[in-house]
């Protein structure tokens, strides 16, 4: 069995190379629909309200009157030098706007991943241990209803129940007005307030995080649950589980200590693959909860016909998915002792 650390590093280096090629591929696709397929690219990049002079400026700025291969060269160069275009109504560059909102989106996505792990995986283990019984059907009904819920419906119901009827949780923004944000270290309020021991800000930011993170997690945890259930059912008939039972260990220890630990390898990697659907749901959830992240920015961009911003968010979110896939590949190689690194 080849498991030499240098082989692992070589494996990671290869994956990073593939990652760069994928990013270039993504820019090619976004270029195709934003420059080639679009009926009137200049109008799109300049905004609907731009006058003729402004449209001319935009044509010159993005080199829209050049042949496609030159346009693509400038577009690609722009992306790799951090120039993602300008907002048609204000003329300010897009990238700083996105970077400024990145921590809020990361905080929301990571929080919902935590909820998916804490709720989704034990539910999958429970369903597997009661395979075919009523509990199994209940869990299946529960995760399928999460899957079937439109992101906006789930968010609206949570707002209605927890904020209007029960009045226990806030529904807008990241902090209660009047509480000053913690000193910026990562930009994620929960992490920053924890690091600076700012407990009022920690309490308030956690309160604000619960509902949006729960609705984002609810939409996606079905896949975690389903995957855990399937991989648990795969390990149940194996000898080491039978041996654990034969030793007289309690059913709880057999299921949660022995079987689940092995089933987790495939589940953890699947979680990283969820990035795409998490980021899709993020657009709607952020808008409904007034969460100041990239998703809400994309929503506003659609309403304001800020096309460069929409294309930029597409590229940035795709890079997020590609990085998540890289992490999943590496995690799988490290966690599963059967994978050879060479």
């Amino acid at each position: 069995m080849k498991r030499n650390i240098w082989d692992l590093l070589l494996f990671i280096a290869k994956r990073i190379l593939v990652m760069f090629l994928l990013v270039i591929g993504v820019t090619f696709i976004t270029f195709l629909f934003s420059h080639v397929m679009a009926p009137d690219p200049a109008r799109l990049w300049a905004g609907r309200r731009a006058n003729a002079a402004r449209v001319q400026e935009i044509v010159a700025l993005y080199h829209l009157n050049q042949p496609y291969y030159i346009q693509y060269w400038y577009y690609l160069k722009g992306i790799f030098t951090g120039n993602l275009g300008v907002d048609p109504s204000t003329g300010s560059p897009i990238l700083p706007e996105i970077l400024q909102r990145l921590p809020a989106t990361l905080e929301l996505v990571f929080a919902s991943l935590v909820i998916m792990v804490v709720v989704g995986i034990p539910l999958g283990a429970l369903a597997a241990s009661r395979n075919g019984k009523a509990t199994d059907h209940l869990v299946r009904g529960f995760y399928l209803s999460g899957w079937a819920t439109p992101s906006f419906l789930g968010a609206l119901v949570l707002v209605l129940v927890f904020s209007y009827y029960l009045n226990v949780l806030p529904v807008q923004g990241m902090l209660t007005p009047g509480i000053s944000p913690p000193q910026t270290i990562t930009g994620m309020y929960v992490v920053d307030s924890l690091l600076t021991a700012n407990f009022p800000a920690l309490y308030s930011s956690l309160q604000h995080l619960i509902l949006p993170a729960t609705s984002l997690a609810f939409l996606n945890f079905g896949i975690a649950t389903r995957m855990t259930r399937a991989s648990m059912l795969e390990v149940f008939p194996l000898d080491y589980v039978k041996a654990a039972r034969a030793k007289g260990l309690s059913e709880y220890v057999v299921i949660y200590k022995h079987a689940l630990r092995n089933a987790l390898v495939s589940t953890v990697t699947v979680l990283a693959l969820l990035a795409g659907s998490l980021l899709s749901g993020d657009v709607v959830v952020e808008e409904i909860f007034g969460w100041p992240g990239i998703g809400a920015y994309a929503f506003t961009a659609v309403q304001a016909e800020n096309f460069p911003a929409i294309v930029a968010v597409t590229v940035v979110f795709s890079i997020g998915v590609i990085i998540a896939n890289l992490v999943a590949d590496v995690l799988y190689a490290v966690l599963d002792p059967k994978v050879e690194w060479g």
């Binding site: 696709i29 657009v283 597409t314 979110f317 896939n325």
Partner: peptide, 13 residues
Amino acid sequence: IFLSIPSLILALA
């Protein structure tokens, strides 16, 4: 490449 782009965002754009 197509699978790397979140489907809702791509359809939206």
